[in-house]
């Protein structure tokens, strides 16, 4: 089964741009990325788009389809009616480069600021022993393919450019949670999570979880547990009082 699909694709760069209309052939079983490739091969050879694996594994092809952040290679055309106009735009939380390609350097900068895995000093390679139950929480977060769709959809930065300075976004708050739950990590990132990475900006409205193509329960399993850990350290009246009275902790 094959039909002519109606597409509107944003084309342009930082100087401006517009939604352009295209009529393209659509075949059975295809995904939006197939259509973009067909556009490149037949109508718009210089249409810029990022992609690599075309199998939902690398997280390169992030964009927005009908206003929703999605992986182009995992958005099947069967999701839409045949007469529906499908709008494809770049991610709207990041600066535009060209067409569907955005500048995602914000994410790489934030990645660099999370204190790396800190193993015990005296443990030699090959001597690491970890139980499956102890690694599986962090393993869920390590499924992340860094598509940055969660970063794109999070209203904290999507709707407030200035918050990018103080907020690392769900992906990297989750990275902190991953390390905090790592059975052999020795560092304590609770304070930096709150002070430097802006955990407090998150109002747990769960859009990150909604768009995550890996179905990671970012909010329930990473952000809220992190908030609880921070609460335990910073906002627990009993702990606070105890620290005051006995001058414990730092």
């Amino acid at each position: 089964m094959s039909y002519k699909g109606q597409f509107r694709v944003w084309r342009g760069d930082s100087d401006g741009g517009s939604l352009e209309d295209f009529e393209v052939e659509v075949n059975e079983g295809e995904v939006v990325l197939d259509i973009i490739h067909r556009l490149q091969a037949t109508q718009a050879p210089d249409l810029a788009v990022r992609w690599n694996c075309k199998a939902g594994k690398c997280g390169s092809c992030s964009a927005e389809v009908n206003g929703r952040p999605r992986l182009l290679c995992m958005t099947r055309m069967s999701l839409f009616d045949t007469d529906e106009v499908i709008t494809v735009t770049p991610m709207r939380a990041f600066s535009i480069v060209r067409d569907l390609v955005t500048d995602v350097s914000y994410n790489y900068e934030k990645a660099r600021e999370v204190q790396a895995f800190t193993p015990p000093k005296d443990l030699a390679p090959g001597e690491y022993r970890m139980q499956q139950v102890d690694v599986q929480r962090s393993q869920e977060f390590r499924k992340c393919i860094e598509c940055f769709l969660c970063q794109d959809t999070c209203h904290v930065v999507r709707d407030h450019e200035e918050n990018k300075l103080n907020f690392s976004g769900p992906r990297f708050l989750m990275r902190i949670a991953e390390l905090e739950m790592h059975p052999l990590d020795t560092a304590d990132r609770r304070d930096t999570a709150q002070d430097d990475h802006g955990l407090g900006y998150c109002n747990i409205t769960k859009c990150c979880t909604e768009v995550c193509p890996e179905n990671i329960k970012i909010t329930d399993n990473a952000l809220i547990p992190m908030k609880e850990r921070v609460a335990g350290r910073r906002y627990d009246p009993v702990v606070w009082l105890g620290n005051k009275l006995f001058k414990r902790g730092k």
Partner: peptide
């Protein structure tokens, strides 16, 4: 400051 912030793709 949000989706219409200057460096982002300009959509109507």
């Amino acid at each position: 400051t949000g989706v219409h912030a200057p460096p982002r793709a300009r959509l109507p």
